[in-house]
Design a protein around this nucleic acid. Structure first.
Lengths: 118, 118
DNA sequence: GTAATTGTAAACCAATTGGTATACTATAAC
DNA sequence: GTTATAGTATACCAATTGGTTTACAATTAC
């Protein structure tokens, strides 16, 4: 297998940097998980977490900057919703490597099986 | 769609933190891309990059800590190879959200088409 | 043996991170 | 109009990051 990866799709590096960085924090991943159930205000999002509102505010801006989330301001509350495109970009990048790891995992499994058979 | 995400698979948070963090740097992603073509020594990996060898050494340790890479020491050279499991873990996490974003993207496309038709 | 090569270790640096507390703005409720 | 609520802004903090330079250890080549 020689899969010459030339950064095909033009997902710019900066965008991928931001998306993967956004996903690298467990609080932000939990926020995404919560938003998956539907839109929510900043307060609602912050409540389950042991950190202050400003901290959650920062996390939300990181998610927004990565294009993973957007907000609609309604009076004094900000309604946050997931934006699917950016997540899809990250998945696309990983997709490039899917063939590699599936094949690798398969051969690892075969090897294990072969040893089992000894 | 109400996909109640309860962190099903037991990919521990720390592991996902490390994997996504490892992927959040473009130099490290490029190193992964290079390793996809086959194992390589630290020197070979470092050569194409405009940074020093110790810097690449650090990146490789980050990849190793994330479980994305391993090395076999042969004399004075370290032969680095990808480890597929960790990448697969990241992909699995994203997979959880696949249904969401595919549906969302589809409805966005529909909307665009509908507007086109006006 | 001496010199070159491969790589890590350690010390340092500026920038970023995730968090806080406090102050503030703006909307909503009474 | 006063008070409570939702959220941001700012200033600060300690820890981490990505990079450097210099020094070092170990293997290989001559």
């Amino acid at each position: 297998m020689t899969l010459t990866v030339t950064n095909d799709r033009n997902l710019p590096d900066e965008a991928l940097d931001r998306v993967f960085h956004a996903l690298s924090d467990r609080t932000r991943r939990a926020l995404i998980a919560r938003l998956l159930e539907g839109p929510a205000s900043v307060k609602e999002l912050a409540d389950p977490f042991p950190v202050t509102l400003p901290a959650i505010g920062k996390h939300l801006r990181v998610l927004e900057a990565a294009g993973l989330m957007h907000r609609e301001i309604r009076g004094r509350t900000h309604i946050c919703s997931l934006t699917p495109e950016a997540l899809s970009d990250a998945a696309s990048w990983l997709q490039t490597y899917r063939m590699f790891w599936e094949e690798s995992l398969a051969s690892l499994a075969n090897e294990a099986e072969r040893k089992e058979g000894d």
